[in-house]
Design a protein around this nucleic acid. Structure first.
Length: 413
RNA sequence: GGAGGGGUAGCGAAGUGGCUAAACGCGGCAGACUGUAAAUCUGCUCCCUCUGGGUUCGGCGGUUCGAAUCCGUCCCCCUCCA
């Protein structure tokens, strides 16, 4: 196919340039030369590519894990291609199986709409949203009648469905799979049919669904999309993929200080990966950082601080990034108090038992935990360690209560 | 419809009448150390009116001096047969 497209040397160079940018961080492209060919044709015919990203409107809080794919979209956009942002409102309204056995609660139309708006707002931090094509899959999926659905279902076999990683795992480990779950890949694939997209992006966990898009496009007589798979970003624990439900995520709406601190808590080994996948720091600079770390000329902490700063800058600004860094140094390097700590009005008894105080201030989840924290020397009041769980505390205005390194409260009357 | 297997703390997984608030791993938290909320090491990790008390092992009801462990029943999951 490629050899049928005649490119001028300048065009050839442009294809190479775009390809170079686009393959950053990519794990797999199916078919392997597909992206190159699509780009070649796009440039030869001066037609932008249509790049699809589907999202489920259930979890409207975007975190860095999601941004891996969105950054890629941004690159496509910068190169003049068209981003097709697909909101799976139909699938979301029915309730998407997530690999967990419980079925998700169906969303109301109102919730879907709200979530979609939240998405658009958050995505606009990365994408030029004015140039994004917004689609809702209810537009076509809700129109299919039962015989359309049967026709669609006939394009796929049970055995092939069971090849999908999570179906296979669940099947093997004796967990239930509802019949309707088989339709999700079909619906997602059908979206590609409806959108006639050239490219679909997704995490490596989406491979099956992305291939389904290719399969169905072929079945419906369309040119097949190219599937581009990006790695799943590990979360703060460094092991499991970043996800909201695991609580190991950095949300792009989070405040600068929190965002900075969370970044500092990722394992050292993940720093370069984060740079590559969630920032636009040039590859060349990245290699230098990597070299520096290897040779010991760069301090891992400083590299991580640079990462944290870069990330905060992306979602806030340079000034706030700077401030977050100072705050971090103050609290964790110098072990002093954060600049502004949460104020709590105290209207309880005075004096008061320490444990009751901690519990009332919600610095501990239970009194048992409060006792534990004291036994573990984690509790300080105005900088003084409290080691007696019986201690009576005379509450003073402006008094600072601290549990561990991260939980603080300043008392006022 | 029939036969069999299974449901244990946030998750995974032991335990199959008292020694079990329940091993172990993961996750989480704290302390030490440090180079950061990395790594490593140590400790903790159901609740409370706490040298004691209360409530847990799918739900309910039994047996027993005593049950996560035995019985009945209901719910849910899986496998095979139809």
């Amino acid at each position: 196919m490629a050899d049928r497209i005649n490119l001028t040397p300048a065009q050839e160079k442009e294809v190479a340039r775009q390809y170079e940018i686009l393959k950053r961080g990519v794990v797999e492209i199916v078919p392997e030369n597909g992206l190159w060919e699509k780009l070649a044709r796009s440039i030869a015919t001066d037609t932008p590519l249509k790049v699809k990203l589907g999202v489920d409107p259930t979890a409207p809080d975007i975190h860095l894990g999601h941004t891996v794919v969105i950054q890629k979209l941004r690159q496509f956009q910068d190169l003049g291609h068209i981003v097709q942002f697909l909101i799976g409102d139909f699938t979301g309204r029915i309730g998407d199986p997530t690999g967990r056995s419980e079925t998700r609660k169906p969303l109301t139309e109102e919730q879907v709409k709200q979530n979609a708006e939240t998405y658009v707002r958050q995505y606009s931090k990365i994408l030029d949203i004015s140039k994004v094509e917004l689609h809702y899959n209810s537009k076509w999926l809700s129109k299919l009648n039962f015989s359309d659905v049967l026709h669609l279902a006939s394009k796929m076999t049970v055995a092939r469905m069971l090849e999908r990683d999570d179906f296979e795992k669940r099947y093997r480990s004796n967990q239930s799979i509802s019949l309707h779950e088989f339709f999700y890949p079909l619906m997602q694939g059908y979206d590609s049919v409806a959108l006639k997209c050239d490219i679909e992006l997704g995490g490596t966990d989406q491979k099956f669904n992305l291939l389904m898009g290719r399969h169905l496009q072929r079945e419906y007589g369309l040119e097949e999309q190219v599937a581009i798979m990006l790695p799943l970003l590990e979360g703060l624990d460094g092991v499991q993929k970043m996800s909201k439900s695991l609580g190991n995520y950095i949300g792009i709406d989070e405040d600068p200080v929190e965002m900075y601190g969370k970044t500092m808590s990722i394992p050292d080994e993940l720093m370069i990966k984060y740079f590559e996948l969630v920032t636009q720091v040039p590859l060349k600079e990245l290699r230098e950082l990597e070299e520096g770390l290897k040779s010991g000329s760069l301090h891992p902490r400083d590299v991580k601080m640079k990462l944290a700063r870069t990330i905060v800058e992306m979602y806030h600004d340079a000034e706030q990034a700077q401030h977050a860094e100072e705050e971090f140094k103050r609290v964790f390097q110098q072990r002093s108090l954060p600049e502004d700590l949460p104020q709590k009005k105290w209207s309880g008894p005075n004096p008061v038992n320490v444990v009751d105080l901690l519990h009332a201030l919600e610095l501990v989840a239970s009194k048992g935990e409060g006792r534990r924290m004291i036994e573990q020397k984690a509790v300080r009041i105005d900088g003084e360690r409290v080691e007696d769980i019986q201690a009576q505390i005379a509450v003073k205005d402006g008094m600072v209560v601290q549990v561990g390194k991260r939980k603080f409260a300043r008392l006022t009357f």
